[in-house]
Design a binder for these strands. Structure first.
Length: 501
RNA sequence: GCUUCCUUAGCUCAGCCGGUUAGAGCAUCUGACUGUUAAUCAGAGGGUCCCUGGUUCGAGCCCAGGAGGGAGCGCCA
């Protein structure tokens, strides 16, 4: 499954600026001699068939090697996975001068030269340098990123530099592609993108501990008349407010007017979660569709996920290839498998029956009415079915108040999509649209009606069946990239005791 | 929050039963090398053994406390 244990990422480098030009051409500070030529991205140059022309490229040095006759400088500008090879003839660019001017691992440079067919193996085109400018060098004795593998744990400590590594470059480009693919998918299906609030006045969204938002002073805040509590009427919003843990309730508002909507935004949970699958700040995608039932919801979730995986396979080949080789040899085949095969759909009750007769010993017993443990979900996905699984119709007592009650009065129309290595990647349900039943569920679960009066009015005026789900964006990126820790698929991870960068 | 493992050179790690001057690979530095692919070859420099206290003739190693990190679990997406 997903790779475990030591893993490496591959390098790249910084030092304070020396500004040097390494040719005999006239040069003035703040007036680059190459300014008559437009820069071209490395990605574009590598794909170019228009050779023997003058080009200008700007990026960061990944490696420099060679001998006293010829020097090779790999330049990467982040436009794609691959670097372009710059060939510097020693007559014009002696090694000592390249070193003295800081053309080393990590330096930011501009290179002017001729784009030619490569004389060597390993690349089709290269640049014969005629001019090299160093914007900023990187002291080789202190720059943390070396021309070698680094552990992901080490790179987490230098999150400001890790985007320069092959691994994080690949992950961040894939992350972008997936964000684009999300909007692309929904737009093509007639969904509208709704911006739900980040600051919420409700603490009853039912998805965990919340971060408080306040402008009251932390020393001696105003108290209520009887001095028993902080007086939030004097706070910025006139009430206690928090960061959102879900956009779902507001998305339902929009779905009851626009039909098919989705949200895609930051989500905050103040749980003390220390796992490779949880973040305190993460991005969540929540489609909500009027007149959809649980079947429609499952169909949407499966089609959506397959479409995203397919997009990655088609558009992120270089980056995925690298991750496949470096971290997880089965990544590409697993992605293809997900696209090619139907997800296994079964009810919670059916799953419990399978688990009860399973030969595997579980640490925790399986019993109808209790929530499935990670080990149970993993068994179903990775051992029993060996494919993504959608579990439905959970006992009502272990699910949220807003899920639609089945006729058996025992289960609700919930669904969890379980992926190999990730566990729950999607959680969703058909929503309870019956006002009386919803009020009963809220009362039973101690959800205060007065805080959600507006949510209840959706059932009072023009209520309709509807369904939706939440997809954890970072969990999707985990699956697509084959990375094993969620802190490595977001540029600046937020988790307990950590908000450094 | 719980369980468990870990912390030794810039990085990744080894270090025997507690014993004299703590090692390796990579990186860095110096030199060699006519097209390299994380180039290669030779040599050199580089240590608060996480911190504090204790046991001992003697502690990187044993004990206690603290700090930081990983993995697993719970909460969930």
């Amino acid at each position: 499954m997903l790779g475990s244990g030591r893993q490496i990422a591959v390098f790249a480098p910084l030092k304070t600026s020396t500004f040097a030009v390494l040719s005999d051409l006239p040069f003035q500070k703040n007036n680059l001699p190459m300014s008559d030529l437009r820069k071209t991205s490395v990605q574009e140059l590598l794909c170019s068939t228009d050779l023997d022309r003058e080009v200008l490229v700007k990026g960061w040095v990944r490696t420099r090697r060679g001998n006293k006759y010829v020097q090779f400088i790999a330049v990467n500008d982040g436009s794609g996975f691959n670097s372009i090879q710059v060939v510097a003839n020693a007559e014009q660019f002696p090694e000592e001068k390249l070193k003295a001017d800081g053309v080393e691992n990590g330096a930011a440079v501009a290179v002017r030269g001729k784009l030619v067919a490569s004389q060597g193996k390993g690349q089709t085109v290269e640049i014969q340098a005629s001019e090299i400018t160093v914007y900023g060098s990187a002291d080789t004795t202190t720059y943390p990123l070396q021309k070698k593998g680094h552990s992901l744990e080490f790179l987490r400590d230098i999150a400001h530099l890790r985007p320069r590594t092959n691994t994080f470059g690949a992950v961040l480009r894939i992350r972008h592609a997936m964000a684009f693919a999300v909007h692309n998918y929904f737009n093509s299906k007639g969904f509208y993108y709704v911006h739900t609030p980040i600051v919420t006045g409700s603490d009853a969204e039912g998805a965990g501990q919340m971060f408080r938002v306040t402008t009251l002073p932390d020393q001696n805040p105003p108290l209520t008349e009887d001095k028993s509590a902080v007086d939030y009427k004097q706070d910025f919003f006139g009430k206690q407010t928090n960061l959102t843990v879900s956009g779902q309730l507001e998305a339902e508002v929009a779905a009851m007017a626009l039909g098919k909507v989705y949200t895609f935004g930051p989500t905050f949970r103040a749980e003390n979660s220390n796992t490779a699958r949880h973040l305190a700040e993460f991005w969540m995608i929540e489609p909500e569709v009027a007149f959809n039932d649980l079947q429609d919801n499952m169909d949407l979730a499966e089609d959506f996920l397959k479409s995203l995986v397919r997009y990655a396979l088609e558009h992120c080949q270089d980056d995925l290839q690298f991750l496949n080789e470096q971290y997880d040899k089965e990544l590409l085949s697993r992605l293809q498998f997900v696209v090619d095969n139907d997800f296994q759909r079964l009810t919670y009750t059916e799953a419990v029956e399978i688990l009860k007769v399973a030969k595997q010993k579980f640490e925790f017993p399986v019993d109808w009415g209790t929530d499935l443990q990670s080990e149970h979900e993993r068994y179903l996905v990775e051992k029993h079915f060996k494919k993504p699984v959608i579990l439905t119709d959970y006992p009502k007592d272990i699910k949220a108040f807003y899920m639609k009650l089945n006729d058996d009065d025992q289960t609700v129309r919930a669904m969890d999509v379980l992926f190999p290595g990730i566990g729950e990647i999607i959680g969703g349900s058909q929503r309870e649209e019956d006002l009386t039943k919803l009020q009963a569920r809220m009362a039973a679960m101690n959800v205060p009606e007065h805080e959600l009066w507006w949510y209840l009015e959706l059932r009072k005026y023009g209520t309709a069946p509807h369904a939706g789900f939440g997809l954890g964006f970072e969990r999707l990126i985990l699956f697509i990239t084959g990375m094993s820790n969620i802190r490595d698929v977001i540029p600046f991870p937020r988790f307990p005791k950590s908000a450094e960068f």
